[in-house]
């Protein structure tokens, strides 16, 4: 039994890894295509049918570029930084419950690489380590633009992590657990009779704060100040080339995928689809539907990320700090207090 669980987890880890990379690769294609469509262009359409082989072409190009390391850079850290960015981006996918348990030869298996009790804390932890990749990369480049990008990235991520944590805390108070599995399980059924029992309907303010912070944490527009082509050349990756640059860019898309997955898990019921339990009872069929539903939610949020990117202009730096410290954190605290008060009142009623 333990052996089979080990094997299952091992296979699942590899599959999760492959899916993260695959989705991230096609997110780069999707970004370019959607950017094109939003701007009344066609987007990439020459590599393969509808340009579907574009990610391969991009990746190949990245590998064959000259791998340049500036002479004045801190070589070890310069090489280490993209690795950290990629590693932290990939690690977060371990705690995501992909679908409901599946039945293999009479035993139920959780489709989740690691069902740890502190799932959300783990993800927050890795997200905050992720800033080291950007910071070290920017610092080790020995370039003023890179350094400014790195400084922006670190202060931005620290500021927005606070509000993000506070927004999540309200959800954790409601579900009474840090494990993502429990949070998903708590979102079964319906709310007020007609809505799905998803946290987004119970925590709309918290969801909004979390969403804004997720944009800031993944360094996506309108919070892409660390990269900021128009001001900082390329920000923290100005000096990077070849696959090191590729890893930085790729880790951004993996982050986007994982944060979409976390938004879907925490606020949109994960793999839950309302009323599906009435029609399907076979656990494997349920798991398949759950996986499809979960993926549809994730893809929607990836699209949402791009949608926002091509709609909103970038923040000015002081506006970013204002929004983080003077708006989001107070609102998140009030939200937390209201959630707590409602939870206490519920016990008395």
């Amino acid at each position: 039994m333990t052996d089979s669980i080990l094997l299952f987890k091992f296979v699942l880890a590899i599959v999760t890894f492959a899916i993260s990379l695959g989705v991230a690769a096609y997110a780069t294609y999707g970004e370019r295509k959607i950017a094109g469509l939003f701007q009344d262009r066609l987007g990439p359409n020459n590599a393969g049918p509808w340009g579907l082989l574009q990610p391969l072409a991009d990746g190949g190009k990245m590998f064959f570029k000259e791998d340049f390391i500036p002479a004045a850079s801190e070589k070890f850290l310069f090489i280490l930084a993209p690795g950290i960015a990629m590693f932290t981006a990939l690690m977060t996918s371990a705690i995501i419950p992909w679908t409901s348990p599946i039945l293999i030869s009479g035993a139920l298996y959780q489709v989740q690489v690691a069902d740890i009790d502190i799932g959300i804390l783990y993800s927050l932890g890795f997200v905050s380590i992720g800033v080291y990749g950007i910071m070290i990369g920017g610092w080790a480049s020995n370039n003023k633009y890179s350094l400014m990008g790195a400084i922006r990235a670190s202060s931005q991520m620290i500021s927005y992590e606070l509000a993000m944590g506070l927004a999540l805390l309200a959800v954790i108070m409601m579900s009474g657990s840090l494990s993502l599995n429990d949070i998903v399980a708590a979102q079964k059924g319906s709310f007020l009779g007609f809505l799905p029992n998803w946290n987004v309907f119970k925590q709309p303010v918290g969801f909004l704060i979390f969403l804004i912070c997720a944009f800031a944490e993944t360094n996506r527009a309108p919070f892409d100040l660390p990269e900021c082509e128009t001001e900082l050349v390329g920000g923290y990756h100005t000096e990077y080339s070849s696959m090191k640059l590729g890893l930085f860019l790729f880790s951004e898309y993996i982050n986007m995928f994982i944060s979409s997955a976390i938004i879907a898990t925490v606020y949109f019921g994960g793999y839950n689809l309302p009323l599906i339990g009435r029609f399907v009872t076979d656990p494997n069929a349920l798991a398949a539907i759950g996986f499809a539903v979960f993926f549809a939610k994730i893809l929607f949020f990836i699209f949402f990320y791009m949608w926002i990117r091509w709609t909103l202009p970038r923040f000015r730096y002081d506006q970013l700090m204002h929004l983080g410290w003077k708006s989001l954190i107070p609102i998140a605290i009030i939200n937390l207090l209201v959630t707590g008060a409602v939870l206490i009142l519920k016990d008395y009623l």
């Binding site: 959607i34 094109g36 939003f38």
Partner: peptide, 10 residues
């Protein structure tokens, strides 16, 4: 704009 007719010619 996502669903608009595209101005780019292939």
């Amino acid at each position: 704009h996502l669903f608009k007719k595209k101005v780019t010619l292939d």
